[in-house]
Design a protein around this nucleic acid. Structure first.
Lengths: 216, 216
DNA sequence: CGCGATCTACGACTTTTGGACGAGGGAACC
DNA sequence: GGTTCCCTCGTCCAAAAGTCGTAGATCGCG
């Protein structure tokens, strides 16, 4: 099999660093730039900046946090892959809900690592991805294993769930969705069954834990 | 990676770094160690390790994340100040709910900064604290200003709220607290009034947003 | 020692919620 | 054509949730 030619003529693979925490960007940039074969070409603090930077620098690999202002990480992954299907994206984040991991990988991310990773392991992960491999943090892999049993919500159920998590009553949900209160109850019933709960408050808790919705 | 060798202890202020993300620790340690007058004497990944490290190294300043496994940050602050009332603690975290800021400062933290701070600003903050000053991130200061209007929950109300956020029904809450269901309703009523809501699900949302409880 | 706040508790009432039956139309897939 | 899934709606009912008013005990504070 032909070895992937990742290293450019400049001899250092370029990295784009995207995270809304300046402190972490600086810290990780230091770590990466200490490696002879890697260097950070640009940093971005949100998704829009990330897309701009990608256009400008065409990095060999992009390190991306999922939770950011302005544009969500998964959406950024999708757009990056649209711009260039060969774009290699490593998700570097704090959270490991099965939902987010699954969505990020489906969007085309090559790796998913948590911020509790060691510097050495991160470097190894970057090199793996540059070599065409993929990498999953053990915790992420475990979560993903649950993917088979993962609840699959229908669009209506998800819409209902979101409004529910926002504290809305059935009547309000019915109004906002333009359906009868009875139908809301149907969706809620299915929702409860899929989440394994019996009350709305419990549903919010479980859904939040699984990353199906976010409060606040 | 302990890096406490080489330098003379007298000329550099010692820093203890506490965060559950190894990557961030390494990154921040790099940043700090580049300064001539600062050096990281130890790192810790949770509260218990932090207390151990403090005993061993008596750092001049402790950088502390609030949300950690094993022991919560606020509790760590309290214990550090018990060990040594002169302990200087800087909260370095992602979240800025009024509750957490207020509790951390009351526990004796000298500064509260968010992880979106720049490396330079962080260094400046550390030097300020070493000089006996305090420092509040603008966002944190703004949140704290709301402190006056902040809701003050009674112990029973808080206990009720926690069980509520866990998805418990009134009957279950009554059992767990050893009171009648009717009294639970009384507490809930007060809770709703203080939070400005009319239903339990909404209460969970608002309480979560304000940092009064945490889901998951 | 009053005063206020807190925690506890009760009855009665209305609204909301959740479950249990059911049931039809539409889109997709084999 | 049949099957399956999704969305929709209806009623009846029991349980839970939420809203009234009232009140005794305790504790800290001025």
């Amino acid at each position: 099999m032909p070895s992937a030619e990742v290293v450019t003529s400049a001899s250092r693979a370029s990295v784009l660093l995207v995270d809304d925490h300046a402190l972490l960007r600086t810290g990780v940039a230091n770590i990466i730039n200490q490696e002879a074969d890697l260097h950070v070409v640009a940093e971005a603090g949100n998704g829009v900046e990330a897309l701009d930077a990608f256009d400008r620098y065409h990095p060999d690999v992009t390190l991306l946090d999922l939770r950011m202002p302005v544009m969500e990480g998964v959406e950024v992954v999708r757009r990056l892959r649209e711009k260039d299907p060969r774009a290699r994206v490593i998700i570097l984040t704090t959270y490991d809900t099965d939902e987010e991991i699954s969505r990020a990988l489906k969007a085309g991310a090559k790796a998913y690592v948590l911020k509790d990773i060691s510097a050495d392991a991160l470097i190894a992960c970057i090199r793996d991805v540059l070599a065409g491999k993929t990498y999953l943090a053990p915790a992420a892999a475990a979560k993903l294993a649950e993917d088979v049993t993962r609840v699959q919500l229908t669009p209506r159920e998800l819409a209902t769930l979101r409004l529910l998590a926002d504290g809305k009553a059935n009547k309000e949900i019915a109004n906002e969705l333009g359906i009868s209160e009875r139908t809301v109850k149907t969706h809620l019933g299915h929702l409860f069954e899929k989440l394994g709960v019996t009350s709305r408050t419990e549903a919010v808790k479980v859904a939040t834990r699984r990353g199906l919705v976010r409060l606040g």
